[in-house]
Design a protein around this nucleic acid. Structure first.
Length: 580
RNA sequence: CGGGGUGUGGCGCAGUCGGUAGCGCGCAGCGUUUGGGACGCUGAGGCCGGAGGUUCGAGUCCUCUCACCCCGACCA
């Protein structure tokens, strides 16, 4: 491609409201342009990158037996009503009516449609297993889009679905996807981790996320440095300390003026925060009051609490709701509360004689004990894991890292096939629901996450596998320097003929402008010629990832670049590196 | 949805006490320059997010509204 003809220009400065590095660089490099909140056009340069990611995804999905198809973006609401998600999913699903006043939705995922296909296409165990996938637009009306391509409202997603006879088949499909995803992200040059995750609105029995570590990530993952464990903080567990061995003492009241926070309380009574009990109040989606109790040094993890309480959603309770169950904000404890689901963290079960609220302003209770002074409806792990907490497997203190979710895999089981009646007949003629899995990757978000990881102060350093072009070719000098332009034109033709992807900066610009744009756009190899190099019959070669350049004879440009490209590709694809 | 912020030419910004809009970059033309974002001259380009109000007069003051960004809530 000749840059003089390229649609979309580079910018010296990013728009003022752009914050994160991938967003800035992709806008400056002329790869993306905003249309509205969370809505982007992909310009030719950016679209090439995303298409390359998609192509890698296709190849790896095909390699595990996936069959590509295409499902609609617009769905009748009825099919979402059949699975119950029409009411379960909130305003993040866009809804509208067609001209005949029928309720319609914009697809935010495709379990319903693929299950509908399965119930009409699959009738026998002989037709299973199957993996189908598509790369299709999704719309999720996020309450807050942010970070360029990291969190958008409209995006394309590769989603695949496995259809199996039984759990063992699902396990195979799940493992196959796991391996395929590892290959995909490795080929994209992404640094990533696989972590255990929450199943969320998808339902089902297991889920893992593929996370690209980045300070701009929206998720926190906990990692065991010994390599024994990695999980999203939403679900991360940790090894608990051994229970405190201590006889229960009689409960007594103590006046604690102005001690409305755990810290203030511990200071006032001169006790460790770990000897206090903290109460946190929520109203569940069912309308039930959820009364969570946890030791003062820990925090409640809402995802875990949701699971333990059986509620699909939790919102903080209001002061009136808190008083209605007999508690008092700031001085709350489960002692004497009514009409509430009391969920107690294991830490409280394992630590006797805690200081807890008296449900009376200015008063606390000493030596409160679970079972004697109040009852728990549920005792569970509802604590949030933090950096430094012990690995649940080996006990090593874990580290916490921010990361971007680039892919996820779910074992769905039979939730959708039962709801929609997608069944097959086994060899005995008995009907069974199809066992399903669903698996997603966001190619645009993957590309942006790579940028987050590889950017330097000059711009992007694309891995060769997903760079918009393999080579940036530029001539240095003036347009009147006809010989230089002729030589560069010839190199462009020669490289292109050899099947090498070249972005040719044929513009009449000064050297600095061309170098800076090449660094910004970030193709892995830069080749430049000028009257100076040509006088020696040479061209200058430089890798975007390195500071040093070398001169090579013009006649050897094509084989040299082919060798370099193979060398850059090898560590990403697992192909053998060429002999040097 | 709560809190904070910003809307002035394609991009980055200034605009004081209310007096009829400016700078840098970019863009077009000409000339000089030419290996890491050159210089000079000339020029094009703005309903100051929108609506209402106050005023002789509003980019500037008031009210409402819209959009975008950040933090939080939320979220596969």
């Amino acid at each position: 491609m000749r840059m003089a003809q390229q649609f979309g220009r580079t910018l010296r400065e990013a728009p003022g409201d752009v914050e994160i590095v991938s967003h800035q660089l992709m806008v400056r490099a002329g790869m993306i342009r905003p249309l509205g909140a969370g809505l982007f056009s992909l310009l030719p340069l950016g679209w090439r990158v995303v298409r390359k990611v998609e192509q890698i995804v296709r190849e790896e999905m095909d390699a595990i037996g996936g069959q590509e198809l295409l499902m609609p973006v617009v769905h009748p609401a009825d099919i979402w009503r059949e699975t119950g998600r029409y009411d379960q999913v909130g305003p993040e699903m866009a809804r509208f009516k067609d001209r005949a006043d029928r309720d319609m939705v914009l697809a935010m995922t495709h379990e319903e449609v693929v299950t509908d296909l399965a119930r009409s296409e699959i009738s026998s165990y002989r037709q299973l297993p199957q993996i189908v996938y598509h790369i299709q637009t999704k719309f999720r009306d996020e309450p807050r889009a942010r970070g360029g391509l990291i969190r958008v409202r409209e995006f394309t997603m590769k989603d695949s679905y496995s259809l199996d006879r039984d759990e063992a088949g699902l396990d195979d499909a799940y493992r196959a996807h796991w391996r395929a995803y590892e290959r995909i992200f490795r080929r994209c040059g992404l640094r990533f981790l696989v972590v255990g995750a929450d199943v969320g609105m998808m339902g089902g029995s297991a889920s893992h996320e593929f996370m690209g570590p980045s300070p701009n990530g929206e998720d926190t993952i906990l990692i065991c440095p010994a390599g024994d464990y990695a999980a999203n903080r939403e679900v991360a567990t940790f090894r608990r300390e051994t229970p405190v061995a201590e006889d229960a003492r009689p409960m007594t009241e103590v006046e604690t003026p102005d001690a409305t926070t755990i810290e203030a309380l511990a200071r006032y009574l001169d006790i460790p925060v770990a000897r206090t009990a903290k109460a946190v109040f929520f109203t569940g989606a069912s309308g039930r009051f959820v009364f969570a109790v946890i030791r003062g040094d820990l925090d409640v993890n809402e995802t875990k609490l949701r699971g333990a309480s059986g509620e699909t959603a939790l919102v903080p309770a209001t002061a009136e709701q808190i008083r209605a169950v007999g508690a008092e904000a700031g001085y709350g404890s489960p002692v004497g509360v009514r009409d509430a689901l009391v969920v107690v963290d294991e830490s409280v079960r394992d630590t006797p004689n805690l200081v807890a609220g008296a449900n009376r302003v200015g008063w606390h209770l000493r030596d409160v004990n679970l079972g004697r002074d109040y009852a728990a409806d549920v005792v569970a792990d509802i604590a949030s894991a933090e950096a430094g907490f012990a690995c649940p497997v080996c006990g090593t203190p874990m580290t916490a890292e921010r990361a971007i979710e680039v892919g996820n895999i779910f074992k769905l089981g039979t939730r959708y096939s039962v709801a929609l009646g997608a069944t097959y007949l086994d060899a005995e003629g008995v009907a069974h629901p199809i066992v399903m899995g669903s698996y997603g990757i966001g190619p645009g978000r993957t590309a942006a996450t790579v940028v987050e990881q590889v950017a330097d102060e000059r711009g992007i350093r694309w891995p060769v596998t997903i760079a918009p072009y393999e080579v940036s070719l530029l001539w240095i000098g003036t347009a009147k320097d006809a010989d230089t332009v002729v030589a560069a034109d010839a190199l462009y033709a020669e490289l292109t003929a050899a099947g090498i992807e070249v972005l040719y900066d044929d513009r009449t610009e000064r050297a600095g402008v061309k170098f800076n744009d090449a660094d910004l756009i970030g193709n892995p190899i830069r080749l430049s010629v000028s009257s100076r190099t040509l006088a020696e019959g040479q061209a200058e070669l430089r890798l975007r990832s390195e500071a040093e350049s070398t001169l090579i004879p013009v006649a050897e440009v094509v084989p040299t670049i082919q060798r370099l490209l193979a060398g850059l590709r090898a560590p990403l694809t697992g192909d053998p590196a060429p002999a040097v």
